[in-house]
């Protein structure tokens, strides 16, 4: 009777149980691109931790008379609109931006997976209702959804990050639920079920691990957009508040108008976001392949 939903990833590989994680780790370590991604992330994490030691200037205080000076030996990445050292700000910015990106995505994953697993696992009327709600949330432009959540939760760094994360949840929910529905009908799940495994066990042990591929792809992509979206809320006046605290997304959106007169103020924070995004994605790819036993070569 259930509305059989469309398959997202149709596949029929049962999962090995023991030694899996060790295998996966070994595959990950041998994956060149993934290690490059890990290196990118490691560099930024190091920058974030060491920022107070290696920053040449205070990232929050500038000299108005030295505003928007181009890159030089004194200021490797130039100075911003109120005369602060851009290099110090990029280093300090790693702290907030990396946290913001990962926390937002994790929030989205947690909420999305709860809803997606419930819908895909339970099926029937639960699925129908949850998915229609998800459809509605998807139809509201994400940034607007986030604005509403901020209005609801109040202003603040944490609220913003949660808001952006929650606005991603519907996409994760829909992806997960699609994969789960396809898996429900697959041979090995039916086999597990016929052998008397409980529905929860089937869901957690057999279906979820195999449904993660599209989620990982989407999540690693979202880590990059989260940084931008958080800054976008700041743009609308719902941001964390103190613009003196360095944060890449904010540094980038705040320089939107300087393409022609101070392009370095776009380039450096932009490059930091792009490189960390590439890092997250290469690592995500490696992770996905490492977790997929069929991809052994």
């Amino acid at each position: 009777m259930a509305v059989q939903a469309p398959a997202v990833v149709v596949r029929a590989a049962p999962r090995a149980s023991r030694g899996l994680w060790r295998d996966a780790l070994r595959r990950l370590l041998r994956n060149g691109p993934a290690m490059l991604g890990l290196l990118f992330i490691a560099i930024f994490v190091a920058a974030a931790i060491l920022a107070p030691l290696i920053s040449p200037y205070d990232p929050t205080v500038g000299v108005i008379g030295e505003a928007k000076h181009g890159p030089s030996l004194q200021h490797l990445m130039g100075t911003d609109s109120v005369g602060r050292d851009e290099y110090s700000r990029v280093l300090f910015g790693a702290r907030i931006s990396l946290t913001v990106g990962s926390v937002a995505v994790l929030t989205g994953l947690v909420f999305g997976c709860l809803v997606g697993a419930l819908a895909g696992g339970a099926g029937g009327i639960v699925d129908t209702i949850l998915m229609r709600v998800v459809d509605v949330l998807l139809a509201v432009p994400g940034i607007l959804l986030a604005i509403g959540i901020v209005a609801w939760l109040g202003q603040g760094q944490l609220q913003i990050v949660l808001a952006v994360g929650i606005s991603y949840a519907p996409i994760f929910a829909r992806l997960l639920r699609g994969s789960l529905l396809a898996l429900r009908e697959s041979d090995y799940v039916m086999a597990a079920r016929s052998m008397g495994a409980s529905p929860a066990r089937v869901l957690l042990r057999h279906m979820l691990p195999n449904a993660l591929t599209p989620l990982i792809v989407q999540a690693t992509l979202a880590a990059a957009t989260a940084i931008i979206d958080v800054a976008g809320l700041g743009f609308l006046g719902l941001g964390p508040g103190d613009p003196r605290v360095a944060e890449w997304g904010e540094m980038l959106t705040g320089s939107a108008g300087f393409l022609q007169n101070a392009p370095y103020l776009i380039f450096f924070p932009g490059a930091a976001i792009v490189i960390s995004a590439i890092g997250f994605n290469l690592l995500g790819d490696g992770l996905r392949e490492a977790l997929d036993p069929r991809l052994k070569r």
């Binding site: 205080v61 500038g62 108005i64 609109s81 109120v82 613009p243 003196r244 705040g254």
Partner: peptide, 15 residues
């Protein structure tokens, strides 16, 4: 023309 940066500049001076 740029309230956010103007506020930061004034904040630097007041600090």
């Amino acid at each position: 023309p740029d309230p956010k940066n103007e506020a930061q500049a004034i904040a630097q001076d007041l600090t």
